[in-house]
Simulated assay, not measured.
Amino acid sequence: MGFGRKRKVVPFRTSGELDAMAAAGAIVGAALVAVRDAAKPGVSTLELDRVAEAVIRDAGAVPSFLGYNGFTGSICSSVNDRVVHGIPSADDILAEGDLVSIDCGAILDGWHGDSAWTFGVGELAQEDTELSEATRLSMEAGIAAMLPGNRLTDVSHAIETGTHDAEKLFGRPFGIVDGYGGHGIGREMHMEPFLANEGAPGKGPQLVVGSVLAIEPMLTLGTYETEVLDDDWTVVTTDGSRAAHWEHTVAVTESGPRILTLRPE
Rank of each mutant, 00 (worst) to 15 (best):
218 M>S: 04
44 S>Y: 05
33 V>P: 05
210 G>K: 11
131 L>D: 00
22 A>C: 08
186 G>E: 13
22 A>S: 15
248 H>I: 02
9 V>M: 14
43 V>T: 14
232 D>S: 14
188 E>F: 10
118 T>I: 10
249 T>C: 08
17 E>K: 14
51 V>G: 04
250 V>W: 00
246 W>C: 08
23 A>S: 14
146 M>W: 13
56 I>T: 03
21 M>H: 11
41 P>V: 03
203 K>Q: 15
39 A>I: 06
119 F>K: 12
261 T>C: 06
93 I>K: 09
19 D>M: 07
56 I>Y: 09
67 G>M: 07
44 S>M: 08
168 K>Y: 09
251 A>Y: 07
177 V>Y: 07
253 T>L: 07
97 G>W: 05
3 F>Q: 03
44 S>F: 06
8 K>G: 01
12 F>V: 10
225 E>G: 00
237 T>H: 02
238 T>E: 00
155 V>G: 09
42 G>H: 07
101 S>W: 01
220 T>Q: 00
130 E>K: 02
49 D>T: 11
47 E>P: 04
185 I>A: 06
118 T>F: 01
188 E>Q: 13
191 M>Q: 12
157 H>C: 09
178 D>M: 05
110 G>L: 03
88 P>T: 10
43 V>A: 15
90 A>K: 13
230 D>A: 15
144 A>Q: 04
99 L>V: 14
77 S>P: 08
170 F>W: 08
39 A>H: 04
5 R>T: 15
161 T>R: 15
5 R>S: 11
102 I>A: 00
64 S>Y: 11
162 G>K: 08
179 G>E: 05
87 I>Q: 15
25 G>P: 08
7 R>H: 07
140 E>D: 12
148 P>L: 13
164 H>Q: 08
176 I>F: 01
52 A>M: 03
159 I>P: 01
141 A>N: 14
180 Y>E: 04
143 I>R: 01
153 T>H: 10
11 P>Y: 13
210 G>A: 10
203 K>H: 15
1 M>C: 08
136 R>C: 05
248 H>P: 07
118 T>E: 02
250 V>L: 02
141 A>D: 07
213 L>Y: 14
70 G>M: 03
93 I>L: 13
223 T>G: 01
31 A>R: 06
244 A>Y: 03
197 N>D: 05
146 M>C: 10
136 R>W: 12
171 G>K: 04
178 D>L: 04
